[in-house]
Amino acid sequence: MTRRKRFGLSQNLNQGLKDTINAAENHTSALRYEVIALSRIELDPENPRNLLITVEDIKQGLSLADGTAKDKQEELNRLTGLAETIKKQGLINPVVVYKFGEKYRLVAGERRFLASLLAGKDDIQARVLNQKPDGLELRLLQWVENTEREDLSLKDRIGNVMAIVDEHKKQNLTAPITATLLRELISISLPQATAYIAVLNAPKDVIEEINLGKINNLDKAAYLAKIHEEHIRRKAIEAIITGTNLKQVKALIENEISLLNKPSLNRVIRKRGRVASRVNLGTTTKPTIIKKIIEFVILQPKYNHLANKFNNINWSEYQQTSKAFRVLIEALEKEGEE
């Protein structure tokens, strides 16, 4: 009797079939990368521009008659640097576009797009979305794009976070934005998220300095945002602007705050119920402990003269030991007053 031969699909084929089907079923439009002719890409007129320079400026050169020529020239210089890298190494990060009729509109990557034009390229790598992302999705995409750029100022980053928070508010009228939520949305650590929220709610003087570009560090900004007293905050701001590090600033400010504090301003740690006005001495079932404590105290030269108070104590007896302890406390209180 010949053994019946079992036929089956090869391992590779099995896996390949599985992977392909999963890819098709779980597709998101975000998985699509293509090389697109630069001529088919345009800036999205509905998105605020980051730069003054336009596609025409790149193609035809800056016109001297242009009032903004000086700023545009600076932008052009920076773009030229990027263009050189693109010429040598190519574009590492694809831009993000969405299909708009026969053309594609930029979601993120304005600088990369203009630099590619400047570099004389014909086409560019792009991640293609099938339709324009909605408000929140758009802001999140732009956030992810922007955080990969080191030169983004705190002002711009705060601007981005504010835009994300606003979009979120539009979609969820009731839910306020908390640090936990922010951290989930933009994948940052909880301390960072807390810092951003603090800065979003910062007092006017701090925000002004951020907008002027004088404060560029998130942690410093968050610290400043939490100082309530105006003139102390002003001192801290000045220290930070002159470049003092955060640790020193904190020490400086802690000092200021403690000088400022009157006793009535001291925080009292309140437990539930009545405010404690005396120390609770507790109980123990082991009188020998009390004996040890008392013996130790009277050994101190300072308290030698108290020894005679404890000569006739029966330490195995609870009441006598309790009394002895009370005697000790009273004696020490008396000693403390002298």
Partner: peptide, 12 residues
């Protein structure tokens, strides 16, 4: 057997 093999592949 080949048909059986395909039916055993949960994705397909």
């Amino acid at each position: 057997d080949m048909l059986g093999s395909l039916l055993e592949n949960k994705s397909i």
